[in-house]
Computed example of a mutant assay.
Amino acid sequence: MVEVTISVEGMSCGHCKAAVEGALSKVDGVASAEVNLAAKNVTVQFDSGKVSEENLKNEIEEAGYDVV
């Protein structure tokens, strides 16, 4: 398992938190995704053999948020 913290702009509420965590949780290989609204980031644990960090960033952007 690999853990990364990705900075995300545009999250401001519980719905945003749920949208980002939900989008990432659906990705094969993701074990957990936890948004920190105050820090404007999401910490993701994933199997790097199944999914890349770039794939995770694309999922966040497809959910409507900006990866910085």
Rank of each mutant, 00 (worst) to 15 (best):
Q45W: 00
E54N: 11
A38I: 09
C13D: 08
V8N: 03
T43S: 13
N41A: 08
V27R: 12
V27C: 08
D28E: 14
A18E: 13
H15W: 01
Q45R: 14
V30E: 04
V42G: 10
I6S: 07
E53R: 15
S52T: 15
A38S: 14
E9D: 15
V42N: 09
A31H: 14
A18N: 14
L37V: 12
S12K: 13
L24T: 05
V42R: 05
M11F: 08
C13G: 10
K26D: 15
S32W: 00
K57F: 04
E21M: 08
A33F: 07
V20D: 07
V27Y: 02
H15K: 13
V51E: 05
M11T: 07
M11W: 05
K26H: 08
S32H: 07
S48T: 11
V51L: 04
S25D: 12
V20R: 04
V44R: 04
D47G: 11
V44S: 08
Q45S: 15
V30A: 04
D28M: 03
A39Y: 07
A39P: 01
V35H: 05
E9Q: 15
A23S: 14
Q45T: 15
V35M: 09
G22Y: 03
K40N: 14
S25K: 15
S32G: 08
N36A: 12
K26P: 01
N36P: 02
A33R: 02
A33K: 08
A19M: 11
D28R: 11
N55Q: 15
V35L: 10
A19T: 14
G29W: 01
V8C: 02
E34K: 14
V27S: 02
S25M: 15
A23K: 13
A38F: 03
V35W: 10
A18P: 01
K17V: 12
E9C: 01
L56D: 10
L37R: 09
E54L: 10
E53V: 14
E34L: 09
V8E: 02
V27G: 04
G14R: 09
S12C: 07
G22E: 10
V51I: 11
A33T: 01
S7R: 13
K57M: 13
V8F: 00
S7C: 01
E21F: 00
G14W: 02
N41K: 13
I6A: 06
L37K: 09
G29P: 07
A39W: 04
S25A: 15
C13S: 06
V30I: 10
T43A: 10
H15V: 08
G29A: 04
E21V: 10
N55V: 09
E9M: 05
A31F: 07
I6E: 04
G10P: 07
D28G: 03
S48A: 14
A23E: 09
A23I: 06
A38T: 15
A18V: 10
A38W: 00
G49M: 06
E54K: 15
G14P: 04
E53H: 12
H15T: 08
E34W: 00
V35Q: 05
A39R: 12
K50P: 04
